[in-house]
Amino acid sequence: MQLDQLLADRADLWRGHATPQAAPAGLSTGFRALDAALSGHGWPAAGLSEVLSAHQGAGLALLLPLLAALSNGGQHRDDRPVQPRVQPRTHPRWLLWVDPPHIPFAPALAARGLDLRRILVVHAGADAAWAAEQGLRSGTCAAVLAWTGTGSGTGSARAERACRRPPAAGHRRRCAGSSSPPRRPTPRCCCCAPSPPPARPRRRCCGSG
């Protein structure tokens, strides 16, 4: 198959520096500058995203505006720089956090607009990949965040497979990875966020370290 043909056919392949024409609209990150830089102007609306960062626990902040919007069923408090719009859903869904590196500090998260009642924190240890997979497959999570540590990446590979194997038809997957040259062992966080519309089930993944 010709490379050009592949590029034309698939929305999830594009040449570097070129904005993909058919890129599906992403979910706004809540930061204008970041939206502008991302294809689809936001986190990919379905699939696994992985965020690598040099600092432990960093990267959650990057996801907070989206998580806040998801936890509130799409509505957002006024104090965000940009309000990610997420379509409201009939039922609120979980935000599953698998093996966060430290205690997620409730006062700060609540102040950033997260509805803490939606968050499930799971300490799964060796079963982390399994737990993330359960969250992804159940269709009851608005987003699944997994901190996969500095390991071999098998956990995120499994999560990626779970993203690809949808519980319902019409499921798309995109994958965006960003990496900076790691100076220390790089903590990783994958976030997989099934996006809301009930009629066309999709799932999205984005990640933070």
Binding site: L120, Q134, S138
Partner: peptide
């Protein structure tokens, strides 16, 4: 989902916070 996770990991391993 909560029940499935707890069945395998134990009730204390799956928590909310406030």
């Amino acid at each position: 989902l909560l029940d499935r996770l707890r069945a395998r990991l134990g009730p204390a391993a799956v928590q909310g916070f406030a």
